[in-house]
Structures are given as C-alpha cells and as structure tokens.
C-alpha cells in the first residue's frame, strides 16, 4: 500500500513539475512584446541596439586623457596569444639619468587571426589592454585588419 501511494505521489509530483515548466513558456508565448530580447540588427544598428558592456569584441590598448597608456612592452600578452595575433615592437631609449630603458614602439594587433579568447587580457600584469564591445569589424582590405593599437605620440603612464 505504501509503495502504491509513493508511486502515485511520484506521478502527481511529475505533473506538478511539468506544469511549472509549461506555465513559464506559456507566459513567454503570451507576452512577446515584454519578453522578446532579440535585436533587430541591421534596422536598429544606429538606434536602439544594446550590446552588453562585457561583450568581447576587439582588443584595445586603453589610453587616458593625457594620451598615456600602461603598456610596459613586457610581451607577456604576445606569449599568451595562441594564434600569434599580437606583435610587440619595443625600442630602447636612454633616460635622462643615462639608463637604458625598454619602451613600447608599436603594439601590432592582427585582427584577422584573433579568436577573441581574451587570454592576452588575463596575461597582462598592468591591465593595459581590454576588450571593447564593438562587433562590426569587417573591412574591405585585408591589410586593414593589421592595426597598431598605441596612438601616435602616446607614452607610458608614470607610476604615481
């Protein structure tokens, strides 16, 4: 008797849990205006499009308002990159007190080979690079995909 009761209870519980799922989808079905989150992309690209802040688009080297970046040209990101996307070209400069110092010359980023895995972001000890949420990255010429990320005339931010 006890097993029969437990069996029937199991059936009733199954119907209850199925109904809770069905109720949710019925709610979604009957409230399309409120619930649908699809972007109507080509039409709304200039108006109501909403790309989340953390969407991993392209890699950027952040510059502040004084045109200063944080990259020390340590090439950890270059080593972390699985595809050989990043090429750091550094230059030796002589500081005022006569020391030789390595500074960033060109931060070359080959967008065509990037898989947006964000391993370079994790590898960077200075938090110099981030992913931007831009996604319309196509260009007409393949050579346009190879970008230099540091802005002309930019320099390393001094440690405060």
């Amino acid at each position: 008797m006890k097993t029969v009761l437990r069996y029937l209870q199991e059936v009733a519980l199954a119907f209850r849990s199925l109904w809770s799922g069905l109720r949710l989808t019925l709610y979604f079905f009957t409230h399309p205006r409120k619930e649908i989150i699809t972007e109507q992309y080509p039409e709304n690209r200039t108006t109501s499009i909403n790309i989340p802040e953390r969407f991993a688009g392209e890699v950027v080297l952040t510059h502040d308002e004084n045109n200063e970046h944080k990259c020390t040209a340590c090439t950890l990101c270059e080593m972390a990159c699985p595809n050989g996307t990043i090429k750091i070209i550094s230059a030796q400069v002589e500081t005022e007190d006569g020391k030789k110092k390595k500074v960033l010359d060109k931060w070359v980023y080959n967008l065509g080979m990037c898989t947006f895995c964000a391993q370079c972001i994790d590898a960077c000890p200075q938090n110099a690079i981030t992913m931007k949420n831009s996604f319309e990255l196509s260009v007409y010429n393949r050579s346009d995909l190879i970008k230099t990320l540091n802005k002309p005339g930019s320099k390393l931010k001094e440690k405060s």
Partner: peptide, 10 residues
Amino acid sequence: KVAGFMQLRY
C-alpha cells in the same frame, strides 16, 4: 513562430 516566442525571439 511558437518556438521563437517561447524562446524569447521572433
């Protein structure tokens, strides 16, 4: 259409 509306798309 039903699939779309139930999965929050058009």
